[in-house]
Amino acid sequence: MLNRKVFSALGGLLAAVPALAYESSYNMPMGVTAIAREVHGLHMQIFWVCVAIAVAVFGVMIYSIVAFRKSNGAVPDRTLLHSTKVEVIWTIIPVAILIFMAVPAAKTLVKMEDTRNAELSVKVTGYQWKWQYEYLGKGVSFYSSLATESNYARQLNSGVDVTKVKDYLLDVDNAMVVPVDTKVRVLLTGNDVIHSWWVPDFAVKKDAIPGFINEAWFKVDTIGRYTGQCAELCGRDHGFMPIVVNVVSKEDFAKWLAAQQQATKAATTTAPAAPAAAAL
């Protein structure tokens, strides 16, 4: 379909412009999943549509402010009261723009909601104020809390220069570990209040609600360390329950999983939290 070609060409063009702005402190990250890149594309597309409308509308406003000044002797045209023609036009054009926006957005939304055929399922539970990760069917489960160094530095009057703390507020004791190129499904719930699990690079943000199980998925194509934070106000330490996901090769993941299972077995207590000894 011609429309689709035009659209994807335009989308590609628009997405190329912000490519310069990666890892910037003023724009959405491009992300490391196909979905995240699509979301980034939608974001840039709607952004440029807004810029185009702004140029047109603000242009007319600024022109009016400059051209029709009383101090320049402008005489008002008091007959300009109403025009069915322009009013119909400026109703229809926005509707067309909205349809142009809604179609690709709806398509992406359908993909985001398709959690079928996941290769790994991890149940994520939000607590005040930490996360629990349970690898379903793998016998691995642990808690993930703010790293000690950050936690010390963030106390009122700690006297620590937080700019010297490595990954201040974005570091945890036990990171979630997932394999690369694998469709991972997360099942989200809350133990006490509502939390929200958000990793910007995956374009995944879903609420973890007590009594509910929400689903989301991601398939990361780049090995690396990705961070996020709780995105729903959940009480006093809402700002201090970060998310760290280490994306590793499938072999490294198998090793990590085996080590975790070993550690769980070795633990004499029934506590679910096993120390993550892995070097990952």
């Binding site: 007319v60 406003m61 009016s64 402010i65 000044r69 402008a74 008002p76 045209d77 300009l80």
Partner: peptide
Amino acid sequence: TTTMWKGSL
């Protein structure tokens, strides 16, 4: 915006 158009601002 159109109210300002051809006005005397």
